[in-house]
């Protein structure tokens, strides 16, 4: 069954849909948690500490966090690998383009591949910036996300990279969420009338939530 899944275009697309939905679930949690920055340094820094003690005393310090990280890395790898392999196949299946060009599909649909690449690069930068502190501007302080986030969004490039990535995310989710429903066999003519606006709405909420943080730092609302 595992072989059938991975060898079939429908199966590989299922892997893409499930891994995408796992990441999406995480991103909603992440976005909501980020909003704590509006309630001051105490609130969000305490939250960062709580994340590490989650599951205690059953689990050791940071084990839950590492579990989430492992699942997310697996999802990113599965998603990117299936996206790459399917894209290669799609390009091979249509080697000659038409001389007479016509208007294509929606922007969100056409930018899934490049948008995905932008997201992949962003994930790497984002971890090096705010998780490991490797490329962090100013002194990175472990367990003090409030200060770290302000450092990042006090640089022009920090804002640019972040806003580009979060916009790309919005478009990716707009087409991706509806697509995942189709891939998993949930789509019908009736349900699609709800699913399409739902995907657009959730993409907007996600993007707006993420965008609010750098905007707050830039406008001095959070400092």
């Amino acid at each position: 069954m595992t072989r059938t899944l991975w060898d079939s275009t429908i199966g590989k697309k299922t892997v893409m849909a499930v891994s995408g939905l796992i990441m999406l679930l995480y991103l909603f949690a992440h976005m909501f948690a980020n909003l704590k920055i509006f309630f001051g340094p105490e609130e969000i820094n305490r939250y960062a500490h709580w994340l590490r003690t989650l599951g205690e005393p059953f689990l050791h310090y940071e084990w839950t966090l590492w579990l989430v990280r492992v699942v997310l890395v697996a999802a990113v790898v599965a998603h990117a690998t299936s996206a790459y392999q399917l894209s290669r196949r799609d390009i091979r299946a249509r080697p000659t383009s038409y001389v007479h060009k016509r208007r294509g599909a929606t922007f969100a649909t056409r930018t899934m591949r490049w948008g995905g690449v932008i997201l992949g690069l962003f994930i790497v930068w984002h971890i090096l910036d705010l998780t490991t502190g490797t490329v962090h501007p100013g002194g990175y302080e472990h367990l003090r996300p409030y200060q770290n986030v302000i450092d990042t969004f006090s640089t022009w490039y920090g804002n640019v990279i972040y806003l580009v990535a979060v916009t790309a995310l919005g478009f990716h989710v707009r087409h991706g969420l509806w697509s995942a429903a189709q891939t998993l066999g949930v789509g019908t003519a009736t349900r699609d009338r709800v699913l399409k606006p739902l995907a657009t709405g959730l993409a907007l909420v996600l993007t707006a939530g993420f965008v609010s943080v750098p905007v707050a730092v830039m406008t001095g609302l959070v400092s």
Partner: peptide
């Protein structure tokens, strides 16, 4: 190639086979 839910197929189909038919087949396949 595989399906990326672009929808061009259903737009071109002279017989109006609708796009959700693909979702129905995915369901059958799974």
């Amino acid at each position: 190639g595989g399906c990326t839910l672009t929808g061009e197929c259903a737009t071109a189909c002279p017989k109006g086979i609708p796009l959700p038919s693909i979702s129905a087949m995915n369901k059958e396949w799974l």
